[in-house]
Design a protein around this nucleic acid. Structure first.
Lengths: 187, 187
DNA sequence: ACTCTAAGCGGAACCGATTCCGGATGCAAC
DNA sequence: GTTGCATCCGGAATCGGTTCCGCTTAGAGT
């Protein structure tokens, strides 16, 4: 694994900047690979080598925006970070994850085209690992691995988008329902 | 809403039969709109008028296969159908739904490309309505609507496919985890 | 400074989903 | 049996993601 060539790094930055600008101007719908390439002044091949595919590009944009969230629950202050008791941390984590998911809904919808795991795997695994650790502390006898999936699944972008945008469900209700499940599990 | 024209009905049947045959012969991967149209002896436009898009076609194939499941939990014998207590029905329902989801994984993956709701809405709504009714009986004070979503979400095809195929998780574990959540909710 | 090579580049070509629209056809009314 | 027309049909054209491959270049070694 050697260092990225300087021209490659420059192109990566140009592409991300161009993509960010297009999303800001036209929304996620307008984010076509050809257009991003043209705006960044590179060939489409370059986008694909760098990001794999359209979801990969979306994921890179998301990743950039939430680097700090990822570290907040790993090493930040309580209740998200270490220090609080596991139940409070889990609750805070699910609440925070709900908010950031709602905040990035369009990009997530685009990134999850091929399922949440194709490229989004990295971040999902981080969330899953964190939550299953907390659950294991709460209920050492339970299948923390599967339970973590079950608590994370309701935050899938397509479901949230549908309920919030089409059905008028409030974000708070979603948080409360998850918290209720978590409580039930703890008891 | 008038009756479907006879040539249209005939074409619908030819298309479904051709699609079924292609899936049987080459799997879901080989199911391209152009190929289905050619095999059915119709134009691609006909596929789109009938089924809307690729997911719509996949959904039609699924729907055809599980008509009986849909009625089993509405009017069949207990524990799935009416007669058993709500907790047992909910448990049986989730178990059965898990099995049929795993059984149709490839088609579901194809159908859910644009989120589980674009076209899959009909069936999802049926499941959701049924489960929330049961939950409302168990916990009249809870937000049955959101809780039903939360229990159904872990059965999303992309997640199940990933866990079962890539991570080697057993179907039974998934069922047990869901049952545990349900128990916690009931208590 | 020069050479060599792995890494990177651009954009044409490809592929499959989706749209469009002029022409054909079922069928209900007469 | 004929007519009127809403519905349906076919397939060419479009559109955008993805792949491919011959050319270019950064940068390590000499």
């Amino acid at each position: 694994m050697r260092r990225e060539r300087t021209d490659a790094a420059r192109n990566r930055a140009k592409i991300l900047a161009a993509a960010e600008a297009i999303v800001a101007a036209q929304g996620v719908r307008g984010l076509s690979m050809a257009e991003v390439a043209a705006a960044a002044g590179v060939g489409v091949g370059t986008l694909y080598r760098r990001f794999g595919d359209r979801s990969g590009l979306a994921y890179a944009l998301i990743d950039r925006r939430e680097r700090e969230f990822q570290s907040a629950f790993i090493e930040g202050p309580p209740p998200l970070g270490p220090g609080a008791d596991p139940a409070a941390r889990a609750r805070a984590f699910l609440d925070a994850l709900t908010d950031r998911t709602v905040g990035q809904l369009d990009l997530l919808l685009m990134a999850e085209t091929a399922g949440p795991f194709a490229r989004f795997g990295g971040a999902y695994d981080a969330y899953h690992g964190h939550l299953s650790m907390l659950i294991a502390q709460l209920r050492p006898d339970a299948d923390a691995y599967c339970l973590a999936d079950a608590l994370l699944a309701p935050l899938a972008a397509p479901l949230l988008a549908h309920r919030i945008r089409e059905c008028g469900v409030e974000v708070e209700r979603v948080k409360l329902a998850l918290a209720a499940l978590l409580d039930g599990m703890t008891t």
